[in-house]
């Protein structure tokens, strides 16, 4: 019978991905709440240091599954390897952090096993022994509690930032580390990855800015950008943007804030017409003071804002510019 919880440990070039520790916190809580054992699996080649790092945490066992075919991440390699681990260990739950890597193979893996994957969860509830997973729909505007009705294992990933890595409990003693023998001989790696790279150096370094005015799709068109540029100038702030603004080439990529842009922590972050999708929020949530101007009182950005004005930015921004200029003069 399926039992226990298995945590997938993500590493790159032998370095632990910090978000794994967040998923570990969720796993530790689940294990305690359901009286299940907790083990972890590290895939790769030459990953014993990562395994030792995880083994210092509070869990029962760490498996190392190594093979030269896992030296570099590929969806085929990881799907095949983790599948072997899961089929052997037969856990009730398999837990991931919702990273780009996990997004790239976990749905394949679960489909290959004929199981279900509840991805990008922000928490869970145990109601009368039944597990409900909380995940957001409509880009964070609505929460849902999702129930699962298949035989285990059940696959779950947790969104970055849902649990705090520094709350990962340390173990009383080091967990046992066991080598898992893979048979990767028949596995064909169809995708051939090349070297990872970063685009040319950024022209603006927003991480140094004390104040940032950031603009989102609420601005409607490129012609209207002058409005937020004026606001930025009046406040002595740098101009930044959400992804759609850069996708449209209204502003250059290096002004994008978020998971695929820059991460900033200025004294002031003023979000104008930005909804507050998680991929944006991860890039600015550590700002000291967050202000949001949005016409939708339910916009997720108001969940992290210190101050908010609900209304039409085309009325509010000119008033703000006037006010800022007044007090300067």
């Amino acid at each position: 019978m399926s039992q226990g919880i298995l945590l997938f440990v993500e590493q790159r070039d032998g370095v632990l991905n910090r978000t794994t520790l967040e998923a570990l916190v969720a796993s530790q809580q689940l294990a305690a709440g359901m009286s299940e054992s907790l083990s972890a699996a590290v895939l790769g080649s030459g990953v014993s240091a990562v395994a030792s790092e995880i083994a210092a945490k509070k869990l029962d066992k760490v498996y190392i599954a190594e093979d030269s075919k896992l030296a570099e991440y590929t969806p085929d390699g990881y799907t095949a390897a983790l599948r072997q681990v899961i089929e052997k260990l037969d856990p009730r739950y398999v837990i991931f952090s919702h990273t780009y890597q996990v997004r790239d193979f976990a749905p394949r893996l679960t489909a290959a096993l004929g199981k279900t994957f509840v991805g990008d969860c922000i928490g869970y509830k145990l109601e009368g022994g039944a597990l409900l997973l909380t995940r957001q729909i409509f880009q964070g505007k609505i929460n849902t509690d999702v129930g699962v009705s298949t035989e285990p294992p059940i696959f779950i990933s947790f969104q970055t930032g849902s649990y705090r890595a520094d709350q990962a409990a340390a173990g009383e003693s080091t967990a046992q580390i066991e080598n898992f023998t893979l048979d990767m001989s028949g596995v064909e790696l169809r995708a051939k990855p090349e070297e990872k790279f970063q685009e040319a150096k950024q022209a603006v370094d927003l991480t140094q800015a004390e104040r940032i005015v950031s603009v989102g799709r609420g601005i409607k068109s490129e012609e209207n950008l002058g409005l937020v540029k004026d606001l930025a100038e009046a406040l002595g702030a740098e101009l930044a943007a959400s992804r759609p603004i850069c996708d449209n080439e209204w502003l250059p990529m290096d002004r994008q804030i978020g998971s695929s842009g820059q991460t900033v922590a200025p004294k002031l972050y003023l979000a104008v017409g930005i909804s507050g999708a998680i991929q944006h929020v991860v890039g600015m949530k550590n700002a000291q003071t967050i202000v949001a101007i949005n016409k939708d009182a339910e916009a997720p950005i108001f969940d992290i804002a210190d101050y908010g004005i609900v209304g039409d930015l085309f009325e509010i921004v000119p008033a703000l510019i006037a006010e800022a200029k007044k007090s300067q003069g």
Partner: peptide, 11 residues
Amino acid sequence: SAQSIQRAYFP
């Protein structure tokens, strides 16, 4: 459906 929404609500 192997997974289904049991409840939807505003955060």
